[in-house]
Each structure stands twice: as structure tokens, then as C-alpha cells.
Design a protein around this nucleic acid. Structure first.
Lengths: 118, 118
DNA sequence: AGGTTATATAACCAGACAGCAAAGTACAAT
DNA sequence: ATTGTACTTTGCTGTCTGGTTATATAACCT
């Protein structure tokens, strides 16, 4: 179903090792397509495609420098991801602790709230 | 190139809204396949597939409860993601600040160490 | 203008992915 | 033993993704 929201796009963009490598190289400063291609065993069009994915995920932006079109990191793209992760971390641990307590107690299993009858 | 490492798998798993919804529901307690299917507009085999993806990403584990096979959250699966995010956050801001300084100063570009000639 | 460099686009291919319906397995209960 | 419930597996779709080569555009530099 073509994961459309921006959070999905960010996660999807980060799911590729090539793309993460690009981002990490970009953390050392902006870089153009050919430069990125030179150190990546991929062809230049492939890099262009990856950059497009990263751009749609708002993780980079392209700027103009003469005939070059270097990519630059955009930290805001990381914010939704960061946010989701933070929420998940807190909620998951909460619930798991509670569940642990339940398992040791082992009294009744009404926690799910989805157990109308049998 | 079939993103094989566990970090990629985690990111890829999180890139799907359906999967994130499953995780969030699971934060409220373990749930079986039919229960998850009942509230998701997807068929039950689809849910099974999603659960498999989440399992391979170590984000959930399946347990046995009579004929049920409920899924349970696994917090460890989130750790690599968390880690990568933390590193990215610190490095990106560092470098970007430095880059900003550079752009305003505009003296020389030796920071990248990647500019042998032209 | 003509050549070089940087990048983008097009056309194509293979494989993965998300969905479905239908059939199969496993356990429980009657 | 038969039925029912929970779940998995198995085709079968169409779409998305990541890669390629080949070609086009764009900017710069003689």
C-alpha cells in the first residue's frame, strides 16, 4: 500500500544500507553525485535515485553550486523518526514491565480488554 | 541488494504503517492474529505475514498459549535503531554546525579531506 | 562552437513485497 | 469422531524497489 506518510518514508529511506552510508558520508560535509558514486561500487544513476528517495523523506536537500548539485543533510527529517522512537521506547518498557509483573503474579488474564467470552 | 543486516530489517519493518499499528496495539498487551486482523481491515493471512516480518526484525516474539500464538513485543529489537538514531543525531548536528560556521567564514575547504584536485 | 564534467531521465530487468482467496494444519471441546 | 477455532501455507496477483546501460540536459571552459 505504498507507505505514504512522511514517517513511513523516513523509515523506508533509512532501511537501505547504501542510503545510510550516503547519509553518514554526508555528515562529513556536502557531496555531489559523482563523488558519492566514486566510493560506492554503484553507478551514478543509482546514486541519483537514492538521493531522490532521501530527498522525498526530507533527510537531505539538494543545493546549487555551479553545475554541481550537492546534497546536504537535513536534520528535521530525522525528527518524526526520533519522536516515534522516543514514544515507543517509553510505552514499550512501561507495558512490558507491567506485563512482567502480571506474569509473576499470574492471577487473571483480563489485561487485553479484548476477551468478551469463550 | 536485499538489505540483510538487522538494522536494515528493523528500519524496513518500521516503515509500514500497518506494522507500526500492530506494534502499538501490542504495547497494550500481547495479541493473537485473529484479534489483530479483526481491527485492521486486512485479512488474517496478511497479518500473519506482517508478524513474520516483525519477528525477523526481532521486534516481536511469538509465544504459545493453547492453540493461540500471540505476539509479544521485544524491546531489544529497537535497540540498534535507537543506537543508530542517537549517533546520527549527535553527528549530524555537530557537522552541520561546523558547516554553518564554514559557510559564514568561507576561508578554506580542508574539512572534508576529499578535495585532491579538479 | 565544441568538449568536458555533473547530473538527470528513460527503458528495461530481476527480485521483493503487500495483498487476496483457498486449502491445510493444529489444538480444543463436544 | 466431528466440529470449530486459531493460525499457517500456498498459489496468484499487481506494484514497488534497486540495479543496470544508454541517452539527454545543463553548466562550465576552452
Amino acid at each position: 500500500m505504498s507507505s505514504d506518510d512522511s514517517l513511513s518514508r523516513a523509515f523506508a529511506a533509512l532501511a537501505d544500507p547504501t542510503r545510510r552510508a550516503i547519509l553518514e558520508r554526508l555528515a562529513a560535509g556536502e557531496a555531489g553525485v559523482v563523488e558519492l558514486a566514486r566510493t560506492s561500487a554503484l553507478t551514478q544513476p543509482a546514486i541519483t535515485k537514492h538521493l531522490k528517495v532521501l530527498e522525498r523523506a526530507h533527510l537531505i536537500s539538494r543545493i546549487r553550486d555551479r553545475q554541481r548539485r550537492p546534497a546536504r543533510l537535513r536534520r528535521e527529517g530525522l525528527l518524526p523518526v526520533d519522536d516515534w522512537l522516543r514514544r515507543a521506547n517509553s510505552e514499550w518498557s512501561d507495558r512490558l514491565d507491567r506485563l512482567e509483573a502480571h506474569l509473576t503474579t499470574e492471577s487473571d488474564i483480563t489485561t487485553t480488554g479484548e476477551n468478551p467470552n469463550a
